[in-house]
Design a protein around this nucleic acid. Structure first.
Lengths: 251, 251
DNA sequence: CGATGGCTTGAGAGGCTTCAATGCCGGTGG
DNA sequence: CCACCGGCATTGAAGCCTCTCAAGCCATCG
Protein backbone atom coordinates (compact mmCIF):
# COMPACT_ATOMS: atom_id res chain seq x y z
CA UNK A 1 0.00 0.00 0.00
CA UNK A 2 1.43 3.35 -0.96
CA UNK A 3 0.32 5.68 1.75
CA UNK A 4 0.14 9.31 0.80
CA UNK A 5 2.42 10.91 3.34
CA UNK A 6 0.00 13.57 4.44
CA UNK A 7 -0.19 15.28 7.79
CA UNK A 8 -2.18 12.44 9.31
CA UNK A 9 0.44 9.95 8.19
CA UNK A 10 2.96 11.74 10.36
CA UNK A 11 0.62 11.44 13.32
CA UNK A 12 -0.19 7.82 12.60
CA UNK A 13 3.49 6.90 12.45
CA UNK A 14 3.93 8.08 15.98
CA UNK A 15 0.77 6.38 17.24
CA UNK A 16 1.88 3.10 15.69
CA UNK A 17 5.04 3.15 17.74
CA UNK A 18 2.86 2.88 20.80
CA UNK A 19 -0.25 0.96 19.83
CA UNK A 20 -1.00 -1.94 17.50
CA UNK A 21 -3.59 -1.07 14.87
CA UNK A 22 -5.02 -3.16 12.05
CA UNK A 23 -4.83 -1.98 8.45
CA UNK A 24 -8.51 -1.08 8.61
CA UNK A 25 -8.04 0.98 11.74
CA UNK A 26 -5.06 2.75 10.24
CA UNK A 27 -6.95 3.70 7.15
CA UNK A 28 -9.81 4.96 9.30
CA UNK A 29 -7.36 7.35 10.89
CA UNK A 30 -5.85 8.37 7.57
CA UNK A 31 -9.32 9.08 6.19
CA UNK A 32 -10.13 11.60 8.87
CA UNK A 33 -11.29 14.88 7.32
CA UNK A 34 -8.75 17.68 7.69
CA UNK A 35 -8.68 21.38 7.10
CA UNK A 36 -5.30 23.07 7.01
CA UNK A 37 -4.71 26.51 8.44
CA UNK A 38 -1.74 28.80 8.77
CA UNK A 39 -1.20 30.51 12.13
CA UNK A 40 1.12 33.51 12.44
CA UNK A 41 3.63 33.65 15.29
CA UNK A 42 2.34 34.70 18.70
CA UNK A 43 -1.24 34.04 17.81
CA UNK A 44 -3.55 31.96 19.98
CA UNK A 45 -5.36 29.38 17.90
CA UNK A 46 -7.22 28.02 20.89
CA UNK A 47 -8.28 30.52 23.51
CA UNK A 48 -8.71 30.01 27.20
CA UNK A 49 -12.21 28.86 28.01
CA UNK A 50 -13.13 28.39 24.38
CA UNK A 51 -15.42 25.50 23.57
CA UNK A 52 -13.71 23.78 20.66
CA UNK A 53 -15.19 21.29 18.23
CA UNK A 54 -12.01 20.14 16.54
CA UNK A 55 -8.55 18.91 17.43
CA UNK A 56 -5.40 20.54 16.05
CA UNK A 57 -2.60 18.52 14.52
CA UNK A 58 0.65 20.41 14.13
CA UNK A 59 2.07 20.01 10.63
CA UNK A 60 4.85 22.55 10.64
CA UNK A 61 6.22 25.01 13.16
CA UNK A 62 6.00 25.03 16.93
CA UNK A 63 3.09 25.48 19.31
CA UNK A 64 2.88 25.94 23.05
CA UNK A 65 0.20 25.39 25.62
CA UNK A 66 0.01 28.38 27.93
CA UNK A 67 -1.18 28.54 31.46
CA UNK A 68 -1.21 31.88 33.15
CA UNK A 69 -1.17 33.44 36.55
CA UNK A 70 -2.93 36.62 37.49
CA UNK A 71 -0.31 39.23 36.74
CA UNK A 72 0.35 38.15 33.20
CA UNK A 73 3.18 35.84 34.17
CA UNK A 74 2.73 33.16 31.58
CA UNK A 75 3.95 29.61 31.86
CA UNK A 76 4.25 27.22 28.96
CA UNK A 77 3.05 23.82 30.13
CA UNK A 78 3.53 21.83 26.96
CA UNK A 79 5.25 22.07 23.62
CA UNK A 80 3.98 20.60 20.38
CA UNK A 81 6.03 19.80 17.34
CA UNK A 82 5.01 18.53 13.91
CA UNK A 83 3.20 15.22 14.19
CA UNK A 84 1.73 16.09 17.58
CA UNK A 85 -1.97 16.36 18.11
CA UNK A 86 -1.78 19.47 20.24
CA UNK A 87 -5.16 19.15 21.88
CA UNK A 88 -6.27 15.59 21.39
CA UNK A 89 -7.58 15.86 24.93
CA UNK A 90 -10.23 18.27 23.69
CA UNK A 91 -12.04 15.34 22.08
CA UNK A 92 -13.20 14.25 25.52
CA UNK A 93 -12.88 17.62 27.24
CA UNK A 94 -13.93 20.28 24.76
CA UNK A 95 -13.74 23.37 26.93
CA UNK A 96 -10.15 24.57 26.84
CA UNK A 97 -8.54 25.02 30.25
CA UNK A 98 -5.42 26.51 28.68
CA UNK A 99 -4.61 28.42 25.55
CA UNK A 100 -2.70 27.13 22.55
CA UNK A 101 -0.38 29.53 20.81
CA UNK A 102 1.88 29.37 17.77
CA UNK A 103 5.44 30.23 18.80
CA UNK A 104 6.52 30.66 15.20
CA UNK A 105 4.53 30.64 12.01
CA UNK A 106 2.79 27.32 12.27
CA UNK A 107 0.53 25.33 10.05
CA UNK A 108 -2.03 23.19 11.80
CA UNK A 109 -4.65 20.87 10.50
CA UNK A 110 -8.05 20.89 12.16
CA UNK A 111 -9.94 17.64 12.60
CA UNK A 112 -13.58 17.71 13.72
CA UNK A 113 -14.23 16.07 17.07
CA UNK A 114 -17.23 14.35 15.56
CA UNK A 115 -15.08 12.41 13.13
CA UNK A 116 -12.61 11.36 15.80
CA UNK A 117 -15.31 10.32 18.24
CA UNK A 118 -16.95 8.41 15.45
CA UNK A 119 -13.95 6.20 14.69
CA UNK A 120 -13.16 5.91 18.40
CA UNK A 121 -16.65 4.56 19.03
CA UNK A 122 -16.49 2.23 16.04
CA UNK A 123 -13.00 0.89 16.76
CA UNK A 124 -12.19 0.36 20.46
CA UNK A 125 -8.53 -0.06 19.55
CA UNK A 126 -8.47 3.43 18.14
CA UNK A 127 -10.10 4.79 21.28
CA UNK A 128 -7.44 3.03 23.30
CA UNK A 129 -4.64 4.33 21.11
CA UNK A 130 -5.83 7.93 21.33
CA UNK A 131 -6.42 7.60 25.05
CA UNK A 132 -2.87 6.31 25.29
CA UNK A 133 -1.49 9.31 23.42
CA UNK A 134 -3.19 11.56 25.97
CA UNK A 135 -1.69 9.55 28.81
CA UNK A 136 1.78 9.92 27.34
CA UNK A 137 1.28 13.66 27.04
CA UNK A 138 0.41 13.59 30.72
CA UNK A 139 3.59 11.67 31.51
CA UNK A 140 5.56 14.41 29.78
CA UNK A 141 3.67 16.99 31.80
CA UNK A 142 4.57 15.09 34.94
CA UNK A 143 8.23 15.21 33.99
CA UNK A 144 7.89 18.95 33.49
CA UNK A 145 6.67 19.31 37.06
CA UNK A 146 9.80 17.54 38.24
CA UNK A 147 11.93 19.66 35.97
CA UNK A 148 10.54 22.98 37.11
CA UNK A 149 10.21 21.92 40.72
CA UNK A 150 13.46 20.17 41.47
CA UNK A 151 16.25 21.05 39.09
CA UNK A 152 18.61 24.00 38.81
CA UNK A 153 18.37 26.33 35.86
CA UNK A 154 21.16 24.76 33.81
CA UNK A 155 20.05 21.18 34.39
CA UNK A 156 16.50 22.23 33.67
CA UNK A 157 17.43 23.72 30.34
CA UNK A 158 19.61 20.75 29.45
CA UNK A 159 16.73 18.43 30.25
CA UNK A 160 14.41 20.37 27.99
CA UNK A 161 16.90 20.14 25.14
CA UNK A 162 17.18 16.40 25.69
CA UNK A 163 13.45 15.95 25.57
CA UNK A 164 13.01 18.02 22.46
CA UNK A 165 15.91 16.34 20.66
CA UNK A 166 14.46 12.96 21.52
CA UNK A 167 11.00 13.91 20.37
CA UNK A 168 12.12 15.59 17.15
CA UNK A 169 14.18 12.53 16.30
CA UNK A 170 11.39 10.12 17.30
CA UNK A 171 13.77 8.45 19.69
CA UNK A 172 16.52 7.89 17.11
CA UNK A 173 19.31 9.89 18.66
CA UNK A 174 22.96 10.05 17.73
CA UNK A 175 25.92 11.18 19.77
CA UNK A 176 26.22 14.41 17.87
CA UNK A 177 23.20 16.00 16.21
CA UNK A 178 21.34 19.22 15.70
CA UNK A 179 17.72 20.13 15.37
CA UNK A 180 15.59 23.11 14.58
CA UNK A 181 14.08 24.63 17.67
CA UNK A 182 12.76 28.08 16.92
CA UNK A 183 11.87 29.14 20.46
CA UNK A 184 13.07 32.52 21.70
CA UNK A 185 14.87 32.82 25.02
CA UNK A 186 11.74 34.38 26.37
CA UNK A 187 9.80 31.27 25.35
CA UNK A 188 12.41 29.08 27.02
CA UNK A 189 12.02 31.12 30.17
CA UNK A 190 8.27 30.54 30.11
CA UNK A 191 8.80 26.80 29.72
CA UNK A 192 11.33 26.56 32.53
CA UNK A 193 9.87 28.92 35.08
CA UNK A 194 12.81 31.30 34.73
CA UNK A 195 13.39 34.78 33.38
CA UNK A 196 14.69 35.44 29.90
CA UNK A 197 17.78 37.07 31.36
CA UNK A 198 18.67 34.03 33.36
CA UNK A 199 18.01 31.72 30.43
CA UNK A 200 20.55 33.72 28.51
CA UNK A 201 23.18 33.28 31.20
CA UNK A 202 22.28 29.62 31.59
CA UNK A 203 22.69 29.05 27.88
CA UNK A 204 26.21 30.33 28.25
CA UNK A 205 26.88 27.80 31.00
CA UNK A 206 25.87 24.92 28.74
CA UNK A 207 27.99 26.29 25.92
CA UNK A 208 30.97 26.75 28.21
CA UNK A 209 30.63 23.11 29.24
CA UNK A 210 30.70 22.14 25.55
CA UNK A 211 27.36 20.44 25.82
CA UNK A 212 25.39 22.38 23.25
CA UNK A 213 25.91 25.16 20.79
CA UNK A 214 23.23 27.52 19.53
CA UNK A 215 22.75 29.64 16.55
CA UNK A 216 19.59 31.27 15.33
CA UNK A 217 17.01 28.70 16.22
CA UNK A 218 19.04 25.54 15.78
CA UNK A 219 20.32 23.56 18.71
CA UNK A 220 23.49 21.58 18.19
CA UNK A 221 24.16 18.84 20.70
CA UNK A 222 27.86 18.18 21.00
CA UNK A 223 27.62 14.99 23.02
CA UNK A 224 24.36 13.21 23.70
CA UNK A 225 25.99 10.95 26.29
CA UNK A 226 27.37 13.83 28.30
CA UNK A 227 24.23 15.90 27.92
CA UNK A 228 21.81 13.28 29.25
CA UNK A 229 24.22 12.62 32.10
CA UNK A 230 24.31 16.32 32.91
CA UNK A 231 20.56 16.73 32.47
CA UNK A 232 19.54 13.70 34.50
CA UNK A 233 17.49 12.62 31.49
CA UNK A 234 15.87 9.24 30.98
CA UNK A 235 13.67 9.02 27.88
CA UNK A 236 11.39 6.19 28.99
CA UNK A 237 8.55 8.55 29.79
CA UNK A 238 8.27 9.62 26.17
CA UNK A 239 7.56 6.04 25.15
CA UNK A 240 8.90 6.16 21.64
CA UNK A 241 10.94 2.97 21.83
CA UNK A 242 8.46 0.63 23.39
CA UNK A 243 6.68 -2.51 22.26
CA UNK A 244 3.31 -1.27 21.03
CA UNK A 245 0.38 -2.02 23.29
CA UNK A 246 -1.93 -4.80 22.09
CA UNK A 247 -5.46 -3.69 21.31
CA UNK A 248 -8.41 -4.24 23.56
CA UNK A 249 -11.28 -6.23 22.15
CA UNK A 250 -14.76 -6.72 23.50
CA UNK A 251 -14.80 -10.07 25.28
CA UNK B 1 -31.98 0.73 42.74
CA UNK B 2 -30.21 0.67 46.06
CA UNK B 3 -26.58 0.93 45.22
CA UNK B 4 -24.23 -0.50 47.77
CA UNK B 5 -21.99 2.42 48.51
CA UNK B 6 -18.76 0.60 47.99
CA UNK B 7 -15.44 1.99 46.92
CA UNK B 8 -16.42 1.92 43.25
CA UNK B 9 -19.54 3.91 44.04
CA UNK B 10 -17.37 6.74 45.24
CA UNK B 11 -15.41 6.65 42.00
CA UNK B 12 -18.53 6.41 39.86
CA UNK B 13 -20.06 9.44 41.57
CA UNK B 14 -17.16 11.54 40.47
CA UNK B 15 -17.15 10.13 36.94
CA UNK B 16 -20.86 10.89 36.59
CA UNK B 17 -20.24 14.54 37.27
CA UNK B 18 -18.24 14.61 34.09
CA UNK B 19 -19.72 12.03 31.75
CA UNK B 20 -23.21 10.77 30.99
CA UNK B 21 -23.55 7.03 31.50
CA UNK B 22 -26.56 4.74 31.11
CA UNK B 23 -27.75 2.59 33.99
CA UNK B 24 -26.23 -0.44 32.27
CA UNK B 25 -22.87 1.26 31.91
CA UNK B 26 -22.95 2.36 35.52
CA UNK B 27 -23.63 -1.10 36.75
CA UNK B 28 -20.83 -2.43 34.56
CA UNK B 29 -18.48 -0.12 36.44
CA UNK B 30 -19.90 -1.06 39.82
CA UNK B 31 -19.48 -4.74 39.01
CA UNK B 32 -15.77 -4.42 38.42
CA UNK B 33 -13.87 -6.95 40.52
CA UNK B 34 -11.95 -5.38 43.38
CA UNK B 35 -9.39 -6.49 45.87
CA UNK B 36 -8.78 -4.24 48.87
CA UNK B 37 -5.35 -3.74 50.35
CA UNK B 38 -3.95 -1.71 53.21
CA UNK B 39 -0.74 0.23 52.55
CA UNK B 40 1.36 1.57 55.43
CA UNK B 41 2.64 5.12 55.32
CA UNK B 42 5.72 5.83 53.20
CA UNK B 43 5.38 2.64 51.24
CA UNK B 44 5.46 2.51 47.46
CA UNK B 45 2.57 0.47 46.14
CA UNK B 46 3.60 1.03 42.55
CA UNK B 47 7.30 1.12 41.86
CA UNK B 48 9.15 3.01 39.16
CA UNK B 49 9.41 0.95 35.99
CA UNK B 50 7.09 -1.74 37.29
CA UNK B 51 4.78 -3.34 34.76
CA UNK B 52 1.41 -3.27 36.47
CA UNK B 53 -1.70 -5.27 35.59
CA UNK B 54 -4.20 -3.46 37.77
CA UNK B 55 -5.34 0.06 38.57
CA UNK B 56 -5.47 1.40 42.13
CA UNK B 57 -8.50 3.19 43.48
CA UNK B 58 -7.89 5.11 46.68
CA UNK B 59 -10.51 4.33 49.29
CA UNK B 60 -9.06 5.94 52.35
CA UNK B 61 -5.91 7.91 53.12
CA UNK B 62 -3.66 9.88 50.81
CA UNK B 63 -1.35 8.84 48.01
CA UNK B 64 1.24 10.69 45.99
CA UNK B 65 2.83 10.18 42.62
CA UNK B 66 6.57 10.66 42.89
CA UNK B 67 9.00 11.71 40.24
CA UNK B 68 12.63 11.91 41.14
CA UNK B 69 15.84 13.51 40.08
CA UNK B 70 19.25 11.92 40.31
CA UNK B 71 20.36 12.97 43.76
CA UNK B 72 17.31 11.72 45.58
CA UNK B 73 15.49 15.02 45.37
CA UNK B 74 11.94 13.79 45.07
CA UNK B 75 9.08 15.72 43.59
CA UNK B 76 5.44 14.85 44.07
CA UNK B 77 3.68 15.35 40.77
CA UNK B 78 0.16 14.38 41.75
CA UNK B 79 -1.93 13.76 44.82
CA UNK B 80 -4.74 11.25 45.10
CA UNK B 81 -7.55 11.34 47.61
CA UNK B 82 -10.35 8.85 48.27
CA UNK B 83 -12.45 8.34 45.16
CA UNK B 84 -9.50 8.91 42.83
CA UNK B 85 -8.24 6.23 40.55
CA UNK B 86 -4.58 6.88 41.19
CA UNK B 87 -3.22 5.23 38.09
CA UNK B 88 -6.09 4.87 35.71
CA UNK B 89 -3.56 5.79 33.04
CA UNK B 90 -1.87 2.45 33.60
CA UNK B 91 -4.77 0.77 31.80
CA UNK B 92 -3.39 2.07 28.51
CA UNK B 93 0.21 2.53 29.64
CA UNK B 94 1.06 -0.31 31.98
CA UNK B 95 4.73 0.39 32.58
CA UNK B 96 4.91 2.90 35.40
CA UNK B 97 6.94 6.02 34.63
CA UNK B 98 6.60 7.22 38.20
CA UNK B 99 6.13 5.64 41.60
CA UNK B 100 2.99 5.73 43.70
CA UNK B 101 3.41 6.02 47.45
CA UNK B 102 1.06 6.12 50.41
CA UNK B 103 1.64 9.33 52.37
CA UNK B 104 -0.32 8.04 55.33
CA UNK B 105 -1.82 4.65 56.02
CA UNK B 106 -3.94 4.18 52.95
CA UNK B 107 -6.37 1.57 51.78
CA UNK B 108 -6.51 1.03 48.07
CA UNK B 109 -8.59 -1.27 45.96
CA UNK B 110 -6.94 -2.99 43.04
CA UNK B 111 -8.87 -3.50 39.84
CA UNK B 112 -7.46 -5.75 37.11
CA UNK B 113 -6.67 -3.98 33.84
CA UNK B 114 -8.32 -6.82 31.98
CA UNK B 115 -11.68 -6.08 33.56
CA UNK B 116 -11.44 -2.37 32.84
CA UNK B 117 -10.31 -2.87 29.27
CA UNK B 118 -13.12 -5.32 28.82
CA UNK B 119 -15.89 -2.90 29.75
CA UNK B 120 -14.12 -0.09 27.90
CA UNK B 121 -14.13 -2.18 24.74
CA UNK B 122 -17.75 -3.23 25.22
CA UNK B 123 -19.07 0.24 26.09
CA UNK B 124 -17.48 3.08 24.10
CA UNK B 125 -19.06 5.57 26.51
CA UNK B 126 -17.14 4.03 29.36
CA UNK B 127 -13.92 4.22 27.37
CA UNK B 128 -14.66 7.87 26.75
CA UNK B 129 -15.46 8.54 30.38
CA UNK B 130 -12.26 6.92 31.61
CA UNK B 131 -10.25 8.64 28.92
CA UNK B 132 -11.82 11.87 30.12
CA UNK B 133 -10.80 11.21 33.71
CA UNK B 134 -7.21 10.83 32.54
CA UNK B 135 -7.43 14.07 30.61
CA UNK B 136 -8.68 15.90 33.68
CA UNK B 137 -5.81 14.48 35.72
CA UNK B 138 -3.55 15.93 33.04
CA UNK B 139 -5.23 19.31 33.34
CA UNK B 140 -4.46 19.26 37.05
CA UNK B 141 -0.88 18.34 36.27
CA UNK B 142 -0.72 21.26 33.89
CA UNK B 143 -1.89 23.58 36.63
CA UNK B 144 0.84 22.20 38.86
CA UNK B 145 3.44 23.17 36.28
CA UNK B 146 2.12 26.72 36.42
CA UNK B 147 2.07 26.63 40.19
CA UNK B 148 5.61 25.42 40.60
CA UNK B 149 6.95 27.46 37.72
CA UNK B 150 5.38 30.84 38.19
CA UNK B 151 4.16 31.48 41.70
CA UNK B 152 5.88 32.53 44.90
CA UNK B 153 6.02 30.13 47.82
CA UNK B 154 3.05 31.52 49.73
CA UNK B 155 0.78 31.80 46.70
CA UNK B 156 1.88 28.35 45.65
CA UNK B 157 0.93 26.84 48.97
CA UNK B 158 -2.36 28.73 49.06
CA UNK B 159 -3.16 27.44 45.59
CA UNK B 160 -2.51 23.87 46.67
CA UNK B 161 -4.84 24.27 49.62
CA UNK B 162 -7.52 25.66 47.33
CA UNK B 163 -7.21 22.74 44.95
CA UNK B 164 -7.33 20.16 47.70
CA UNK B 165 -10.26 21.81 49.46
CA UNK B 166 -12.15 21.93 46.19
CA UNK B 167 -11.39 18.33 45.39
CA UNK B 168 -12.18 17.00 48.86
CA UNK B 169 -15.48 18.83 48.79
CA UNK B 170 -16.24 17.73 45.22
CA UNK B 171 -16.64 21.35 44.25
CA UNK B 172 -19.11 22.19 47.03
CA UNK B 173 -17.18 24.83 48.89
CA UNK B 174 -18.31 27.16 51.63
CA UNK B 175 -16.80 30.40 52.82
CA UNK B 176 -15.41 28.82 55.95
CA UNK B 177 -14.54 25.13 56.08
CA UNK B 178 -11.95 22.65 57.12
CA UNK B 179 -10.72 19.37 55.73
CA UNK B 180 -8.42 16.59 56.67
CA UNK B 181 -5.13 16.79 54.86
CA UNK B 182 -2.59 14.52 56.50
CA UNK B 183 0.50 15.59 54.53
CA UNK B 184 3.65 16.46 56.43
CA UNK B 185 5.47 19.71 55.76
CA UNK B 186 8.11 17.65 54.04
CA UNK B 187 5.44 16.25 51.72
CA UNK B 188 4.17 19.75 51.03
CA UNK B 189 7.70 20.77 50.15
CA UNK B 190 7.93 17.94 47.65
CA UNK B 191 4.65 18.98 46.07
CA UNK B 192 5.60 22.62 45.78
CA UNK B 193 9.24 22.39 44.78
CA UNK B 194 10.34 23.96 48.07
CA UNK B 195 12.20 22.83 51.17
CA UNK B 196 10.44 21.74 54.32
CA UNK B 197 11.99 24.63 56.21
CA UNK B 198 10.59 27.16 53.83
CA UNK B 199 7.18 25.51 53.83
CA UNK B 200 7.13 25.97 57.55
CA UNK B 201 7.86 29.69 57.28
CA UNK B 202 5.37 30.05 54.45
CA UNK B 203 2.66 28.41 56.51
CA UNK B 204 3.22 31.09 59.07
CA UNK B 205 2.71 33.76 56.42
CA UNK B 206 -0.68 32.35 55.49
CA UNK B 207 -1.67 32.12 59.13
CA UNK B 208 -0.53 35.66 59.80
CA UNK B 209 -2.74 36.80 56.92
CA UNK B 210 -5.68 34.99 58.54
CA UNK B 211 -6.23 32.88 55.47
CA UNK B 212 -5.82 29.41 56.93
CA UNK B 213 -5.15 27.80 60.26
CA UNK B 214 -3.53 24.43 60.78
CA UNK B 215 -3.50 21.87 63.42
CA UNK B 216 -2.38 18.28 63.27
CA UNK B 217 -3.34 17.35 59.76
CA UNK B 218 -6.48 19.43 59.36
CA UNK B 219 -6.56 22.56 57.27
CA UNK B 220 -9.05 25.22 58.28
CA UNK B 221 -9.86 27.80 55.65
CA UNK B 222 -10.91 31.05 57.27
CA UNK B 223 -12.20 32.72 54.12
CA UNK B 224 -12.57 30.93 50.83
CA UNK B 225 -13.17 34.21 48.99
CA UNK B 226 -9.99 35.79 50.26
CA UNK B 227 -7.98 32.62 49.85
CA UNK B 228 -8.80 32.07 46.16
CA UNK B 229 -8.11 35.74 45.55
CA UNK B 230 -4.75 35.43 47.25
CA UNK B 231 -3.96 32.12 45.55
CA UNK B 232 -4.97 33.16 42.06
CA UNK B 233 -7.17 30.08 41.98
CA UNK B 234 -9.83 29.25 39.41
CA UNK B 235 -11.37 25.80 39.80
CA UNK B 236 -12.53 25.28 36.21
CA UNK B 237 -9.64 22.96 35.43
CA UNK B 238 -10.86 20.43 37.98
CA UNK B 239 -14.13 20.09 36.10
CA UNK B 240 -16.36 19.12 38.97
CA UNK B 241 -19.16 21.55 38.22
CA UNK B 242 -19.61 21.02 34.55
CA UNK B 243 -22.39 19.66 32.35
CA UNK B 244 -21.47 16.03 31.84
CA UNK B 245 -20.17 15.16 28.39
CA UNK B 246 -22.60 13.29 26.16
CA UNK B 247 -21.49 9.79 25.20
CA UNK B 248 -20.03 8.86 21.86
CA UNK B 249 -21.85 6.24 19.87
CA UNK B 250 -20.77 4.38 16.79
CA UNK B 251 -22.39 6.17 13.84
C1' DC C 1 12.19 7.36 79.56
C1' DG C 2 14.96 7.42 75.68
C1' DA C 3 14.15 7.25 70.80
C1' DT C 4 11.98 8.85 66.83
C1' DG C 5 9.72 11.78 63.52
C1' DG C 6 7.96 16.00 62.67
C1' DC C 7 7.87 21.00 63.61
C1' DT C 8 10.22 25.48 64.63
C1' DT C 9 13.64 29.01 64.48
C1' DG C 10 18.12 31.46 63.39
C1' DA C 11 21.98 32.92 60.53
C1' DG C 12 24.46 32.99 56.44
C1' DA C 13 25.00 31.85 51.60
C1' DG C 14 23.57 31.55 46.92
C1' DG C 15 20.71 31.25 42.84
C1' DC C 16 17.69 33.80 40.38
C1' DT C 17 15.29 38.17 39.63
C1' DT C 18 14.89 42.98 38.66
C1' DC C 19 16.10 46.98 36.50
C1' DA C 20 18.52 49.11 33.09
C1' DA C 21 21.38 49.87 29.22
C1' DT C 22 23.65 48.31 25.07
C1' DG C 23 24.20 45.60 20.90
C1' DC C 24 22.63 42.98 17.08
C1' DC C 25 19.99 41.78 13.10
C1' DG C 26 16.32 41.70 9.70
C1' DG C 27 12.56 44.27 7.80
C1' DT C 28 10.52 48.43 6.02
C1' DG C 29 9.87 52.81 3.98
C1' DG C 30 11.54 57.00 2.20
C1' DC D 1 20.15 52.00 -0.88
C1' DC D 2 20.42 53.50 3.41
C1' DA D 3 18.39 54.97 7.75
C1' DC D 4 15.40 53.78 10.97
C1' DC D 5 12.86 50.70 13.84
C1' DG D 6 11.38 46.77 16.64
C1' DG D 7 12.19 42.39 18.50
C1' DC D 8 15.54 39.68 20.48
C1' DA D 9 19.99 38.82 22.72
C1' DT D 10 23.54 40.27 25.94
C1' DT D 11 25.68 42.17 29.97
C1' DG D 12 26.18 44.44 34.65
C1' DA D 13 24.89 45.50 39.40
C1' DA D 14 22.03 45.18 43.27
C1' DG D 15 18.66 42.87 45.95
C1' DC D 16 15.48 39.37 47.43
C1' DC D 17 13.56 34.89 47.89
C1' DT D 18 14.64 30.54 49.02
C1' DC D 19 18.16 27.17 50.41
C1' DT D 20 21.49 25.12 53.57
C1' DC D 21 23.14 23.99 57.82
C1' DA D 22 22.35 23.55 62.48
C1' DA D 23 20.20 23.49 66.76
C1' DG D 24 16.22 23.06 69.84
C1' DC D 25 11.47 21.68 70.74
C1' DC D 26 7.41 18.90 71.13
C1' DA D 27 4.52 14.94 70.78
C1' DT D 28 4.06 10.06 70.37
C1' DC D 29 5.40 5.38 71.23
C1' DG D 30 7.81 1.41 72.38
Amino acid sequence: MTRSYNSLGQFLDKVRRRSVLTAEEQSAILSLPVRAEQIPAHMDFVELGEHVDHACLIVHGLAGRFGQGREGNRQITALHIPGDMADLHSVVSPSATSALQALTTTTVVKIPHGAIRDIAARYPSIAQALWRECVIDAAILSEWVVNVGRRTASVRLAHLYCEMAYRYRLGEVTERMSFDFPATQHHLADMLGLTAVHVNRTLRVLEAADLVRLKRGVVEILSWARLIEYADFDPVYIQLNVTPLAPMRAG
